[in-house]
Structure formats: structure tokens, C-alpha cells
Computed example of a mutant assay.
Amino acid sequence: MAALAWLLIPLVAAIGASLWGTWALRTRRTRGDGPELVGYARFREAMERSTTTTTSVSGS
């Protein structure tokens, strides 16, 4: 009976590994880069405005 248990451990591990592998390689739906790029553009505009304001204030 103990030998059967030792044979079942690798079998269960192999089944678990195959299930995890199929889950990890599934095709995922992507939202696209639209919202991220819009947020980055707003961030750059804000940084350019703060740099322009800082240089004109410190130059006075």
C-alpha cells in the first residue's frame, strides 16, 4: 500500500503541473494601450507646465 502512495504522489504532481501549465499559457484578452497612453500624455503635459512655471519663477 505504501508503494502505491509513492506512485500516486508524482501522478498528482504531474496532473497539477499540467493544469497550471494550461492556465498559465491561456490566451488573454488585452485592453490595448489606449488608456495608458492617454494618461502618460497628460502626465507629460503636466510636467512640462510645472517645468515652465518653475523656470520663469526662479528666473525673476
Rank of each mutant, 00 (worst) to 15 (best):
M1W: 13
M1H: 13
A2F: 12
A3L: 14
A3T: 11
A3G: 10
A5S: 08
L8A: 13
L8T: 11
I9W: 06
P10V: 01
P10K: 05
L11F: 08
A13W: 13
A13K: 07
A14Q: 02
I15S: 02
I15T: 06
I15H: 07
I15Y: 11
G16S: 06
A17D: 00
A17C: 05
S18Q: 09
L19C: 12
L19M: 05
L19T: 07
L19V: 08
L19F: 09
L19W: 10
W20Q: 08
T22N: 05
W23E: 02
L25Q: 13
L25N: 12
L25S: 12
T27E: 11
T27P: 02
R28P: 02
T30H: 15
D33E: 10
G34A: 12
G34N: 05
P35N: 01
P35A: 03
E36Q: 08
L37C: 00
L37R: 11
L37D: 00
L37E: 07
V38F: 12
V38A: 09
G39D: 08
G39K: 09
G39A: 12
G39N: 03
G39Y: 04
Y40I: 03
R42T: 00
R42F: 04
R42D: 04
F43R: 07
F43D: 06
R44N: 01
E45K: 04
E45N: 06
E45H: 03
A46P: 00
A46W: 06
M47C: 06
R49T: 06
S50Y: 05
S50E: 14
T51L: 12
T52C: 11
T52Q: 15
T53E: 14
T53K: 10
T54K: 11
T54F: 15
T55W: 14
T55V: 13
S56W: 14
S56Q: 14
V57W: 11
V57S: 14
S58R: 14
G59H: 15
G59I: 07
S60P: 14
S60E: 15
